[in-house]
Design a binder for these strands. Structure first.
Lengths: 167, 167
DNA sequence: CGCAAGGTTGAAGCGCATCAATGTAAGTGG
DNA sequence: CCACTTACATTGATGCGCTTCAACCTTGCG
């Protein structure tokens, strides 16, 4: 989401299989924009076909509600994190979060995940400055919580990182 | 929403006519709790009856989607505000927001609204401490932006307050 | 009266922003 | 192949915004 003053807030990172937002399934609302960091495969839905389909197959509605519930829960959690957490906690949670979501997709090996985010993406998602993101990541590396190669990230000390995240 | 450490984050203030959350219409999920500040009139829905009703009357589904869209938009805006605004902006926005929502319901007279919130509620909603909320409100009063009586609030300088809110 | 809830004010300090400089690697055109 | 640029990461110095801690005041209430 881009602010009037040109800054931006990243509200979520989409992983393979995610839909952009349940809201968009019904209305072409564009409070926000979507940007690709990696190569992307995507598909689109025809809104009218989708509505007909939902009326015909109630079990699809149930699946949709589930998505909706999850989306709202994550939105709430995001607000809480942004309002109540320190920089360390926000960044540690972001990493753990991405790790869990990728692991659930079988996209984590050992404790390592692909990590195409630049520091300014982390800053955009956590509401911090790039400079401070850099310091926190350096601190995490110095404490041997994580290790970062060019485009991947390894969690060396899951317990320590979870402690930093206050989780 | 109550945090593990006992603090809480207020995600929204419900006004007459609001539903608690569209999510709750379909699943008894309770990530959050609801607390009454004033006397309250409420009604409840039977989830199964509601689902049947929605299948029979598509125009109801449309209304529901509208609620859903608004709810998500407000959740996003909340995250952005919490991540990117100063204390002054957050508090000014909270006041302007409540004022607009009440005005739309015909519940504002002149520039005055009922305002049953205590300072700790404002703190809970903005992610600030009570002490700082107090200072900001004092500042707003000194600058003649607002005036507060026991349980009401008057916007003396809408333009100035909007400027403080960065809107 | 004593107590609880809410509001106000001051002093001190930390967390993060801001500003600025420096480094490195990859890409681009002459 | 070199000069230049662009993107990203890193580091230091300084300061503001907000928290924290603490005290004190007012009001309403059992």
């Amino acid at each position: 989401m881009t602010l009037p003053d040109g800054r931006r807030q990243i509200l979520s990172f989409l992983l393979p299989g995610d839909i952009v937002s349940t809201v968009l399934l019904f209305e072409p609302v564009s409070q926000c924009s979507v940007e690709a960091i990696t190569e992307v495969h995507y598909r689109i839905f025809n809104r009218n076909e989708l509505k007909d389909l939902l009326l015909k197959h109630p079990y699809l509605s149930d699946k949709l509600f589930r998505l909706w519930i999850d989306e709202k829960a994550r939105a709430n959690q995001l607000a809480v994190d942004l309002a109540r957490s320190t920089a360390d906690e926000r960044i540690a949670r972001l990493i753990l979060n991405l790790f869990d979501r990728l692991a659930r997709r079988g996209m984590a090996r050992d404790q390592t995940i692909d990590f195409p985010l630049r520091q300014h993406h982390i800053a955009g998602a956590t509401g911090l400055t790039v400079v401070h993101v850099n310091r926190v990541l350096s601190e995490f590396r110095r404490a041997s919580l994580i290790e970062t190669n060019e485009r991947s990230l390894t969690i060396l000390d899951p317990i320590g990182l979870r402690r930093a995240a206050n989780m």
